[in-house]
Computed example of a mutant assay.
Amino acid sequence: MTSYGYFLSCEQYGPHELVDQARRAEAAGFERLWISDHFHPWLDEQGQSPFVWSVVGALSQVTTLPISTAVTCPTIRVHPAIVAQAAATAAVQTEGRFVLGVGSGEALNEHVLGDRWPPVAERLEMLTEAVEVIRALHGGGVVNHRGRHYRVEDARLYTVPEQPVPIYVSGFGPQAATLAGQIGDGYCGVSPDASLVQTFRDAGGGAAPAQAGTKVCWAGSVDEGIDIAHRLWPNDALPGQLAQTLPRPQDFADATGLVDRDAIAATFSCGPDVDAHVGQLASYADAGYDEVYVQQIGPDHDDFFAAYRNEVLPALRAR
């Protein structure tokens, strides 16, 4: 049976708000938490970018829900040995309820130290080696690694969980979904595309968990919800590889000037129609995802959590 979690957006909310939303999500009946990992927001309008590992530490003290990063890039801006240490500590803090979601990243976050932004095939190669490094360090022994992209010398993590940290790999296209099946303990996606889930499973993922994240804008009316979503998250309606290649929030603002309200209405459930919200999340369950996470875009969290507690989540579980 599909489980439903809440998606905490580090691009849109500060650390205190994220902790508050996590508490409210658990009280409303959500079963899990996803949290994004960004250096920049996609757009200045979103307005936030707290350091995810600080927030995860805070979350571990206020909620008993499992937490996944969605997703961390362990290849350029942060060396995989440091990600390994952060994830191991998070797993200890959450008493084993932590999943490290990883992906090949976006130029938006990874260019900030002046590093070259590699092509897709190289980024996936780097991700494969990074996962190898992280798993080696999570074993608790001394690690020496000399690979094509990374070096680790006489490194050992002393704070490690009793069980290895599960590593789920994101994949927004067939090539990355195949890699997720080959090296991941699970899969992360954002599209209700059954073919990507099946690609992951056929490539070696088998029955391993598949997670997906989506967004809605609960608001007093459809038009109000569309207006809010169009202002805050038009980047979700951008086509192709733009999300991976544009380097600055201003570049996203320029590109999203081409996204109209109709595109937003087709991307997000906006407004207070319970059936529309149920339908959007159900499309991910029907695509084969085991875990579906939803982010509330708009400011009306009171009505959002009440509606999901009383109507949306019960309807999804009754399917």
Rank of each mutant, 00 (worst) to 15 (best):
A208K: 14
S60G: 09
C188T: 08
A22W: 06
Q163Y: 12
G147F: 07
T64V: 15
R116F: 14
G240F: 11
V216G: 00
T245A: 12
T2E: 01
D273C: 08
T64C: 14
R309G: 10
H16T: 15
A263P: 13
F200M: 02
L59D: 02
P272Y: 01
G103R: 00
Y150G: 14
L124P: 09
G271R: 00
G5W: 03
G184P: 08
E122G: 05
E311T: 04
G205Q: 00
T89F: 02
P50M: 07
G29W: 03
V160M: 09
P161C: 01
G29T: 04
G96P: 04
I35Y: 00
S60A: 15
P15I: 08
R261E: 02
D290W: 09
G240M: 09
E95D: 12
Y308V: 10
D185F: 11
D251T: 12
S269Y: 00
A229N: 06
A266I: 11
R135Y: 09
D251R: 01
A237W: 10
V83A: 04
T69K: 06
A58N: 01
Y13C: 01
E95N: 15
T199F: 05
L100N: 01
P119W: 11
H16K: 15
L8N: 07
S49A: 15
V52G: 05
D115S: 11
N109R: 12
A90W: 00
A237I: 05
E106A: 12
L232M: 10
I35T: 01
A81P: 02
A255H: 07
I82L: 15
Y308P: 01
C73G: 08
I167C: 06
T199D: 05
T128R: 15
G225F: 01
R261C: 08
A81I: 08
Q21Y: 13
C270F: 09
A121I: 06
T178F: 03
V112C: 14
D290H: 06
D273A: 04
G288R: 03
W218G: 00
C73H: 06
V143T: 08
V169W: 00
V216W: 03
R146G: 15
L113Y: 14
S170W: 06
I76E: 07
A282G: 07
A285M: 13
A266M: 12
T159K: 10
G147M: 06
Y308D: 02
Q12R: 04
A107S: 11
P15E: 10
H145M: 09
A90Y: 03
P239E: 06
E291F: 13
V143K: 08
T178H: 13
P209W: 01
S60M: 14
R123V: 05
Y289C: 14
Q198S: 13
Y13M: 07
L281G: 12
D290K: 10
D275G: 14
G271Q: 00
N144R: 10
G101S: 00
V165I: 10
P299A: 03
I35H: 00
M1R: 15
P66V: 09
W117Q: 13
V71M: 03
Y150W: 15
G139H: 05
A176Q: 14
E291I: 13
D286L: 15
Q280R: 14
Q21C: 06
P119D: 13
V112D: 15
D223H: 05
R116N: 12
